[in-house]
Protein backbone atom coordinates (compact mmCIF):
# COMPACT_ATOMS: atom_id res chain seq x y z
CA UNK A 1 0.00 0.00 0.00
CA UNK A 2 2.84 2.35 0.89
CA UNK A 3 4.39 1.66 -2.51
CA UNK A 4 1.08 2.48 -4.23
CA UNK A 5 0.60 5.69 -2.24
CA UNK A 6 4.15 6.84 -2.95
CA UNK A 7 3.57 6.32 -6.67
CA UNK A 8 0.21 8.09 -6.41
CA UNK A 9 1.55 11.21 -4.71
CA UNK A 10 4.61 11.45 -7.00
CA UNK A 11 2.38 10.93 -10.04
CA UNK A 12 0.00 13.66 -8.94
CA UNK A 13 2.90 16.04 -8.32
CA UNK A 14 4.52 15.66 -11.73
CA UNK A 15 1.05 15.42 -13.30
CA UNK A 16 0.10 18.77 -11.77
CA UNK A 17 3.09 20.37 -13.49
CA UNK A 18 2.11 18.79 -16.82
CA UNK A 19 -1.45 19.94 -16.14
CA UNK A 20 -0.47 23.58 -15.63
CA UNK A 21 1.53 23.66 -18.85
CA UNK A 22 -1.26 21.79 -20.66
CA UNK A 23 -3.71 24.44 -19.51
CA UNK A 24 -1.41 27.01 -21.10
CA UNK A 25 -1.73 25.17 -24.42
CA UNK A 26 -5.51 25.02 -24.09
CA UNK A 27 -5.97 28.71 -23.15
CA UNK A 28 -4.27 29.78 -26.38
CA UNK A 29 -6.06 27.19 -28.48
CA UNK A 30 -9.42 28.05 -26.99
CA UNK A 31 -9.00 31.77 -27.67
CA UNK A 32 -7.04 31.80 -30.91
CA UNK A 33 -7.50 28.38 -32.47
CA UNK A 34 -3.73 28.00 -32.52
CA UNK A 35 -1.43 25.32 -31.09
CA UNK A 36 1.56 27.04 -29.53
CA UNK A 37 4.56 24.78 -29.96
CA UNK A 38 6.70 27.17 -27.91
CA UNK A 39 4.73 26.50 -24.72
CA UNK A 40 7.48 24.39 -23.09
CA UNK A 41 10.07 27.03 -23.96
CA UNK A 42 7.91 29.84 -22.49
CA UNK A 43 7.57 27.75 -19.32
CA UNK A 44 11.35 27.42 -19.16
CA UNK A 45 12.03 31.13 -19.75
CA UNK A 46 9.68 32.16 -16.91
CA UNK A 47 11.39 29.69 -14.56
CA UNK A 48 14.82 31.03 -15.52
CA UNK A 49 13.67 34.60 -14.89
CA UNK A 50 12.35 33.55 -11.46
CA UNK A 51 15.72 31.95 -10.74
CA UNK A 52 17.57 35.11 -11.84
CA UNK A 53 15.41 37.24 -9.54
CA UNK A 54 15.95 34.81 -6.66
CA UNK A 55 19.73 34.88 -7.04
CA UNK A 56 20.14 38.59 -7.64
CA UNK A 57 17.81 39.71 -4.85
CA UNK A 58 17.03 38.42 -1.40
CA UNK A 59 15.21 35.38 -2.74
CA UNK A 60 12.02 36.45 -0.97
CA UNK A 61 9.16 34.23 -2.12
CA UNK A 62 6.75 37.13 -2.67
CA UNK A 63 9.26 39.15 -4.69
CA UNK A 64 10.18 36.12 -6.81
CA UNK A 65 6.53 35.18 -7.37
CA UNK A 66 5.54 38.71 -8.36
CA UNK A 67 8.53 39.08 -10.64
CA UNK A 68 7.81 35.71 -12.27
CA UNK A 69 4.17 36.64 -12.90
CA UNK A 70 5.12 40.04 -14.33
CA UNK A 71 7.76 38.43 -16.50
CA UNK A 72 5.29 35.82 -17.72
CA UNK A 73 2.68 38.46 -18.58
CA UNK A 74 5.28 40.54 -20.42
CA UNK A 75 6.60 37.52 -22.29
CA UNK A 76 3.12 36.50 -23.40
CA UNK A 77 2.18 40.02 -24.46
CA UNK A 78 5.42 40.63 -26.35
CA UNK A 79 5.14 37.34 -28.23
CA UNK A 80 1.54 38.05 -29.13
CA UNK A 81 2.21 41.62 -30.28
CA UNK A 82 5.52 41.14 -32.07
CA UNK A 83 5.30 37.59 -33.40
CA UNK A 84 1.71 36.39 -33.51
CA UNK A 85 -0.40 39.44 -34.36
CA UNK A 86 1.30 39.99 -37.72
CA UNK A 87 0.30 36.41 -38.53
CA UNK A 88 -3.43 37.06 -38.07
CA UNK A 89 -5.33 35.90 -41.12
CA UNK A 90 -2.38 33.85 -42.41
CA UNK A 91 -2.77 30.10 -43.00
CA UNK A 92 -2.79 28.00 -39.82
CA UNK A 93 0.20 26.00 -41.02
CA UNK A 94 2.31 29.16 -41.38
CA UNK A 95 1.29 30.35 -37.92
CA UNK A 96 2.12 27.01 -36.36
CA UNK A 97 5.52 27.09 -38.08
CA UNK A 98 6.09 30.51 -36.52
CA UNK A 99 5.53 29.03 -33.05
CA UNK A 100 8.01 26.26 -33.87
CA UNK A 101 10.56 28.88 -34.92
CA UNK A 102 9.84 30.80 -31.75
CA UNK A 103 10.47 27.63 -29.73
CA UNK A 104 13.92 27.21 -31.26
CA UNK A 105 14.81 30.84 -30.60
CA UNK A 106 13.65 30.73 -26.97
CA UNK A 107 15.46 27.42 -26.42
CA UNK A 108 18.73 28.80 -27.76
CA UNK A 109 18.39 31.98 -25.74
CA UNK A 110 19.00 30.03 -22.53
CA UNK A 111 22.66 29.53 -23.38
CA UNK A 112 23.09 33.07 -24.61
CA UNK A 113 21.46 34.73 -21.60
CA UNK A 114 22.20 32.17 -18.86
CA UNK A 115 24.29 29.01 -19.23
CA UNK A 116 24.03 25.28 -19.79
CA UNK A 117 24.54 24.32 -16.14
CA UNK A 118 21.65 23.00 -14.06
CA UNK A 119 20.55 25.37 -11.30
CA UNK A 120 18.40 25.06 -8.22
CA UNK A 121 15.62 27.55 -7.50
CA UNK A 122 15.96 28.36 -3.83
CA UNK A 123 13.30 30.65 -2.35
CA UNK A 124 13.46 29.22 1.13
CA UNK A 125 10.41 26.99 0.71
CA UNK A 126 9.36 24.05 -1.42
CA UNK A 127 12.43 21.85 -1.01
CA UNK A 128 11.68 20.48 2.43
CA UNK A 129 10.53 16.88 2.77
CA UNK A 130 7.36 15.89 4.62
CA UNK A 131 7.10 12.27 5.74
CA UNK A 132 3.76 10.73 6.60
CA UNK A 133 3.58 7.02 7.35
CA UNK A 134 6.81 6.32 5.50
CA UNK A 135 5.75 8.29 2.43
CA UNK A 136 8.05 11.16 1.50
CA UNK A 137 6.94 14.22 -0.45
CA UNK A 138 8.51 17.62 -0.98
CA UNK A 139 6.54 20.62 0.16
CA UNK A 140 6.81 22.08 -3.35
CA UNK A 141 5.07 18.99 -4.70
CA UNK A 142 2.17 19.44 -2.27
CA UNK A 143 2.00 23.10 -3.25
CA UNK A 144 1.86 22.41 -6.99
CA UNK A 145 -1.04 19.95 -6.59
CA UNK A 146 -2.92 22.51 -4.49
CA UNK A 147 -2.12 25.28 -6.97
CA UNK A 148 -3.43 23.25 -9.89
CA UNK A 149 -6.69 22.51 -8.06
CA UNK A 150 -7.12 26.18 -7.13
CA UNK A 151 -6.40 27.30 -10.68
CA UNK A 152 -8.86 24.78 -12.09
CA UNK A 153 -11.57 26.24 -9.88
CA UNK A 154 -10.55 29.84 -10.64
CA UNK A 155 -10.44 29.29 -14.39
CA UNK A 156 -13.78 27.52 -14.39
CA UNK A 157 -15.30 30.53 -12.59
CA UNK A 158 -13.49 32.95 -14.93
CA UNK A 159 -14.84 31.39 -18.11
CA UNK A 160 -18.27 30.85 -16.57
CA UNK A 161 -18.97 34.16 -14.86
CA UNK A 162 -16.56 36.93 -15.91
CA UNK A 163 -17.28 39.18 -18.93
CA UNK A 164 -13.73 38.71 -20.20
CA UNK A 165 -14.03 34.95 -19.89
CA UNK A 166 -17.28 34.94 -21.82
CA UNK A 167 -15.68 37.24 -24.44
CA UNK A 168 -12.79 34.79 -24.82
CA UNK A 169 -15.21 31.93 -25.33
CA UNK A 170 -17.13 34.02 -27.87
CA UNK A 171 -13.98 34.80 -29.87
CA UNK A 172 -13.03 31.12 -29.81
CA UNK A 173 -16.49 30.08 -30.99
CA UNK A 174 -16.85 32.69 -33.76
CA UNK A 175 -14.46 35.62 -33.87
CA UNK A 176 -16.37 37.51 -36.62
CA UNK A 177 -19.65 37.46 -34.73
CA UNK A 178 -17.78 38.36 -31.54
CA UNK A 179 -16.28 41.32 -33.39
CA UNK A 180 -19.75 42.46 -34.46
CA UNK A 181 -20.77 42.28 -30.82
CA UNK A 182 -18.03 44.77 -29.96
CA UNK A 183 -15.46 42.34 -28.63
CA UNK A 184 -11.86 43.12 -29.56
CA UNK A 185 -10.37 39.89 -30.84
CA UNK A 186 -6.82 41.23 -30.66
CA UNK A 187 -7.31 42.18 -27.01
CA UNK A 188 -8.66 38.71 -26.27
CA UNK A 189 -5.73 37.14 -28.06
CA UNK A 190 -3.26 39.26 -26.08
CA UNK A 191 -4.98 38.31 -22.85
CA UNK A 192 -4.89 34.64 -23.80
CA UNK A 193 -1.16 34.73 -24.52
CA UNK A 194 -0.48 36.51 -21.23
CA UNK A 195 -2.69 34.11 -19.24
CA UNK A 196 -1.18 31.08 -20.94
CA UNK A 197 2.32 32.31 -20.19
CA UNK A 198 1.46 32.87 -16.52
CA UNK A 199 -0.24 29.49 -16.02
CA UNK A 200 2.52 27.53 -17.75
CA UNK A 201 5.13 29.71 -16.02
CA UNK A 202 3.71 28.71 -12.64
CA UNK A 203 4.22 25.09 -13.68
CA UNK A 204 7.79 25.88 -14.66
CA UNK A 205 8.58 27.58 -11.38
CA UNK A 206 7.17 24.65 -9.42
CA UNK A 207 9.18 22.25 -11.52
CA UNK A 208 12.35 24.22 -10.81
CA UNK A 209 11.49 24.19 -7.11
CA UNK A 210 10.85 20.45 -6.88
CA UNK A 211 13.43 19.34 -9.42
CA UNK A 212 15.95 21.66 -11.06
CA UNK A 213 16.38 24.22 -13.75
CA UNK A 214 18.23 23.19 -16.89
CA UNK A 215 18.14 23.94 -20.62
CA UNK A 216 16.39 20.58 -21.06
CA UNK A 217 13.35 21.88 -19.20
CA UNK A 218 11.56 22.82 -22.42
CA UNK A 219 10.86 19.09 -22.82
CA UNK A 220 8.09 19.51 -20.27
CA UNK A 221 6.12 20.95 -23.15
CA UNK A 222 6.43 17.63 -24.97
CA UNK A 223 4.81 15.92 -21.96
CA UNK A 224 2.18 18.56 -21.45
CA UNK A 225 1.04 18.56 -25.07
CA UNK A 226 -0.29 14.97 -24.90
CA UNK A 227 -2.03 15.97 -21.67
CA UNK A 228 -3.84 18.71 -23.60
CA UNK A 229 -4.77 16.29 -26.36
CA UNK A 230 -6.01 13.82 -23.77
CA UNK A 231 -8.07 16.40 -21.88
CA UNK A 232 -9.25 18.16 -25.03
CA UNK A 233 -7.35 20.80 -26.96
CA UNK A 234 -10.13 23.31 -26.38
CA UNK A 235 -10.78 22.27 -22.76
CA UNK A 236 -8.72 24.30 -20.31
CA UNK A 237 -9.96 22.42 -17.26
CA UNK A 238 -9.80 19.11 -19.13
CA UNK A 239 -6.15 19.77 -19.99
CA UNK A 240 -5.35 20.27 -16.31
CA UNK A 241 -7.00 16.95 -15.50
CA UNK A 242 -5.26 15.38 -18.51
CA UNK A 243 -1.94 16.37 -16.96
CA UNK A 244 -2.80 14.60 -13.72
CA UNK A 245 -3.85 11.49 -15.66
CA UNK A 246 -0.62 11.44 -17.66
CA UNK A 247 1.46 11.88 -14.49
CA UNK A 248 -0.36 9.06 -12.73
CA UNK A 249 -0.23 6.72 -15.73
CA UNK A 250 3.50 7.29 -16.17
CA UNK A 251 4.24 6.65 -12.53
CA UNK A 252 2.07 3.56 -12.14
CA UNK A 253 3.42 2.09 -15.37
CA UNK A 254 6.98 2.84 -14.26
CA UNK A 255 6.35 1.44 -10.80
CA UNK A 256 4.40 -1.69 -11.68
CA UNK A 257 5.46 -2.62 -15.21
CA UNK A 258 9.02 -1.31 -15.48
CA UNK A 259 11.04 1.87 -15.82
CA UNK A 260 11.19 1.51 -19.62
CA UNK A 261 7.41 1.79 -19.79
CA UNK A 262 7.23 5.09 -17.98
CA UNK A 263 7.63 7.34 -21.01
CA UNK A 264 5.55 5.11 -23.27
CA UNK A 265 2.52 4.57 -21.02
CA UNK A 266 1.14 8.12 -21.27
CA UNK A 267 1.24 8.06 -25.05
CA UNK A 268 -0.29 4.58 -25.18
CA UNK A 269 -3.17 5.86 -23.08
CA UNK A 270 -3.65 8.83 -25.42
CA UNK A 271 -3.86 6.54 -28.44
CA UNK A 272 -6.53 4.43 -26.76
CA UNK A 273 -8.54 7.44 -25.55
CA UNK A 274 -8.35 9.25 -28.89
CA UNK A 275 -9.58 6.13 -30.70
CA UNK A 276 -12.69 6.27 -28.55
CA UNK A 277 -13.00 10.05 -28.14
CA UNK A 278 -11.05 11.79 -30.94
CA UNK A 279 -11.75 15.21 -29.40
CA UNK A 280 -10.27 14.25 -26.01
CA UNK A 281 -11.91 13.42 -22.72
CA UNK A 282 -13.40 16.88 -22.18
CA UNK A 283 -13.06 18.49 -25.60
CA UNK A 284 -15.83 19.57 -27.97
CA UNK A 285 -16.54 17.39 -30.97
CA UNK A 286 -15.84 19.70 -33.92
CA UNK A 287 -12.38 21.01 -33.21
CA UNK A 288 -9.85 21.20 -35.99
CA UNK A 289 -6.60 19.45 -35.20
CA UNK A 290 -3.22 20.63 -36.48
Amino acid sequence: MQYFLQLLISGLAIGAIYGLIAMGFAVIYKSTGLVNFAQGEMTMIVAYIAWTVSTTGSGNILVVSLAAILAAVSLGLVIERVVMRPMLGEPVFATVMVTIGLAVILRSSINFIWDAYPHGLDIGVGRGIVRVGGIGVRTGQIAVIATLLLLLAAIWAFFRYSKTGVAMRAVAADDRTALLMGISATRVHALAWAASSVIAGIGGVFFALSYDLSPAMFQLGLKAFPATILGGLDAVLGSGIGGLLIGLTENFAGGYIGSGMKEVAGFAMIIVVLMIRPFGLFGERDIERV
Binding site: I14, G260, E263
Partner: peptide, 20 residues
Protein backbone atom coordinates in the same frame (compact mmCIF):
# COMPACT_ATOMS: atom_id res chain seq x y z
CA UNK B 1 18.23 -2.99 -13.37
CA UNK B 2 16.36 -0.15 -15.05
CA UNK B 3 16.52 1.85 -18.24
CA UNK B 4 15.24 5.36 -18.67
CA UNK B 5 14.42 7.32 -21.78
CA UNK B 6 16.83 10.09 -22.73
CA UNK B 7 15.38 13.39 -21.53
CA UNK B 8 13.43 11.85 -18.63
CA UNK B 9 13.21 14.29 -15.75
CA UNK B 10 11.12 12.56 -13.11
CA UNK B 11 12.66 9.44 -11.54
CA UNK B 12 10.16 8.90 -8.74
CA UNK B 13 8.94 5.44 -9.80
CA UNK B 14 12.44 4.30 -10.83
CA UNK B 15 13.97 5.20 -7.49
CA UNK B 16 11.02 3.72 -5.64
CA UNK B 17 11.70 0.45 -7.43
CA UNK B 18 15.36 0.72 -6.47
CA UNK B 19 14.33 1.25 -2.84
CA UNK B 20 12.02 -1.75 -2.94
Amino acid sequence: SGTYKKGQQDFSSDMLQLKE
